[in-house]
Design a protein around this nucleic acid. Structure first.
Lengths: 244, 244
DNA sequence: ATTTTATTATGTTAAAATGACACTAAATAA
DNA sequence: TTATTTAGTGTCATTTTAACATAATAAAAT
């Protein structure tokens, strides 16, 4: 490849999207056709690309996101770097790399980022790369070592969401408490008691009720809430609790 | 450089060592002398080196550790990757890289690891690279972007020690509860009540008292304890608690 | 031999957080 | 009008946290 990218460095991005019910991941189709038109294989991968010479790793990740979702200024976090010498040595990976003009012998290190969005903020059909949402629980295998990257991203998300206000990144600005609760349930894989959850919410000053309710739902409409980052920043205190 | 290393990839390792009182970091001296013998500058850096073509990133980090401390099989964790395009562009960095035959224009990405040892397990004078322990709190600046790397490593350590049994990696096999307590105090920068701390210890089955006491201390000798990883693994349960 | 010094070891109580648990209210759809 | 679906609410028992002071034991100093 003769562009302005670094041949042995890439960034892969696990884009998590919440749809009020499930946790989803944005994936690209990876389809390789033979000369005669027959499909050699067709599977899916995370979104990623090589790092450009002048850009930081964060900028590179933000660029993927912009290209894939059209979104800027969204939550992005570097979580791990994958550098196993044989990570691109599976048959399909080699065929694919050759087909796009990359040397399959190059040892590529990939820096993993994850990002958090609400699926409704992404107009997938308008994006440059035609990515699609997949239910996280239905994803079995992925191209390259991307299943491993996805697993590690989920772990990082689970760890971080326990102590940081990440859930709000997965929600629209105005949300119901049921949706907020659902996020913790699907991300952590647990069930939460509704009343205990709401008690917890009410003890926190930065989840603020709005003077607005859900519209057009065929049941009792829920109160809408928002997250105030200002209040969060102003009131947060460090938590030094530990367990062995 | 014409060895079997990858020119734009390095691993830097923050080696934390506990000495019963403080948290220390193992640093190398970086001294550049002119032809006439005058010193151009002298400062300190983390230990690190370029990744070899055939080795994984973990192996590369373990190799640094072995070369610097003589130790194998010690706690090592990848915590962040540093890839700013200008991270090696400070004057001293450029002079240094030239002096060791590296091209200062190469954009080098560094994968950061931290490791945890007890200072007494390391015979620093015997090591290949003549590293020295420095009190973490006294370290002001470091060569390259290593202060930034150190800061990030400390953050990662603080986060992880709150929920994982890392403290024992900083201790000898047999330790007193005062030393265990001290680790949490110096790593997290807090003060802990002795009685509450010991109550917490006694509720945990994998911190086990030995039939042995401290020897040759000029005060009441303390009970020695050990950490049983077997019991830890057998009894640990996942903690799904969260806060917003 | 006695005293000093340094550190170990130990329990109670009040306040806060957690976890278990069941019924009524409000909107649309049938 | 009734059925369906989800929202919204309080109590009590248990567990966890946080604050707090004094006696015991070893070596070192006198």
């Amino acid at each position: 490849m003769n562009d302005n990218t670094i041949p042995n460095l890439s960034v892969d991005c696990v884009i998590f999207g919440f749809d009020s019910e499930k946790l989803n991941v944005l994936l690209l189709e990876r389809k390789l056709d033979a000369q005669n038109g027959e499909t050699i294989f067709c599977d899916h991968t995370l979104v990623g690309h090589h790092v450009r010479t002048g850009e930081t790793l964060d900028e590179s990740a933000a660029r993927i996101l912009k290209e894939t979702t059209g979104l800027s200024n969204i939550y992005l976090e570097q979580f791990y770097t994958f550098g196993n010498p044989d990570r691109l040595k599976k048959t399909r990976a080699k065929l694919w790399l050759e087909s796009i003009g990359r040397n399959p012998e190059t040892r590529v290190i990939s820096i993993g980022y994850f990002s958090l969005v609400n699926v409704n903020s992404v107009h997938v059909s308008y994006t440059e790369r035609h990515a699609k949402w997949f239910d996280l629980k239905e994803i079995d295998d992925l191209g390259f070592d991307h299943k491993e990257i996805l697993n590690k991203a989920l772990e990082a998300l689970q760890t971080k969401i326990k102590t940081n206000p990440l859930a709000f990144e997965l929600l629209p600005q105005k949300f119901t408490l049921s949706h907020l609760q659902k996020i913790y349930e699907v991300v952590l894989g647990i069930e939460i008691d509704k009343r205990n959850f709401r008690k917890k919410v009410s003890q926190v000053p930065y989840i603020v009720p709005l003077k607005e309710k859900q519209q057009k739902v065929s049941h009792k409409p829920a109160q809408l809430y928002m997250f105030s980052r200002d209040i969060f920043e102003a009131t947060k205190k460090k938590d030094f609790n530990f367990s062995f």
